[in-house]
Write a protein that binds this DNA or RNA. Structure first.
Lengths: 171, 171
DNA sequence: GAACTGTTCGTTATAACATAACATTATTGT
DNA sequence: ACAATAATGTTATGTTATAACGAACAGTTC
């Protein structure tokens, strides 16, 4: 039986982690950070953060909007895009360009660009802890005289679970 | 004075290359490859390829559509998306996810994922010759048990020319 | 060259993603 | 309490992408 991972470990592809803990922790970190930065984590913003943490699958803006509507929040597109913009600015969420979707950030305390692994089968995504790749990437760019300001690195494929399930002949 | 680069070198950020040569070469390569692969480079497809080669700036589908309309081609969205789909399949074009845009591929003869440098100031993009990064990327993913099937690597920032022009106080 | 088959294209409609612009309400600092 | 700023509500629209179905075309077989 796999170990229960430490609370801020990589958990997306781990079937049996305590996901409530992920959510709680994310919300707590968010509250702390926003307080520190004098940023206002209003009810909509908090709820949107909670929603993108409901699973480790990136959510589209309109999926979020649907949920907000159910919760009785205002539900016009600007509402969700504003909340997302705030969360992105605060480093509490990331945008996945290749999916037009958003996902909560597990490490908002240190500002970073997310490198993502995205499972094409189950839709889960997790950040790839690959700070070591930043330097070579920037160096290659530098060799072309190019100055990198932001990075989009999204690797799509099959997560461990889905590698097993897709080779299952029953599928 | 900078050298004239060899014909299939990196040229996007080089101000004074002969761009007609880029286009000609791309179209010739496309014809050859399509013949080899028994793929039909029909008039619309060829024209779309030519259009995304008009500059080194990635083009949006609707920009392409506008041009097609001017040329008297049918101009409903499916037309351009079908042509683009074909070009992507044949490796003749790449999609830039972070821009929702498309750009011609200078090296269609060997199938690859493009790693892109995208200038936020002038809009030009060029492929980063960084095959050496593929292995480390995949290894990091592998370490998480993840099997990479496709890669989106897009670095945004300032190209050599725009680094100069944006620090120019006249801007 | 007629009939068959699969591919490409035309056409209409709509889905999915995102922002502009401006009015209103809430919060903060004085 | 007041003014200034930030956040939200609201309406409308812009942008990107695909579904679905029928017509035209190209290649293949007889």
């Amino acid at each position: 039986m796999p170990n229960q991972p430490a609370s801020d470990d990589l958990t997306a592809f781990c079937c049996n982690h305590d996901h409530h803990q992920c959510i709680d922790q994310a919300l707590n970190k968010a509250k702390t950070l926003c307080k520190e930065h004098c940023a206002r984590l209003t009810p909509v913003r908090e709820r949107v953060l909670e929603l993108i943490w409901q699973s480790h699958k990136p959510l589209g803006a309109y999926q979020i909007l649907e949920q907000l509507a159910r919760d009785g929040f205002n539900s016009a597109p600007p509402t969700v895009y504003r909340a997302l913009e705030f969360l992105l600015e605060q480093g509490l969420a990331h945008r996945i360009a290749s999916l037009n979707a958003f996902i909560g950030c597990a490490h908002p305390e240190r500002r970073h660009q997310g490198y993502f692994l995205i499972c094409r089968h189950c839709g889960s995504a997790q950040e790839l802890p690959a700070e070591t790749l930043t330097k070579p990437l920037k160096q290659h760019a530098q060799a072309q005289g190019f100055k990198v300001e932001s990075e989009t690195v999204e690797l799509s494929g099959l997560c461990p679970n889905c590698q097993a399930s897709t080779q299952d002949p029953s599928r």
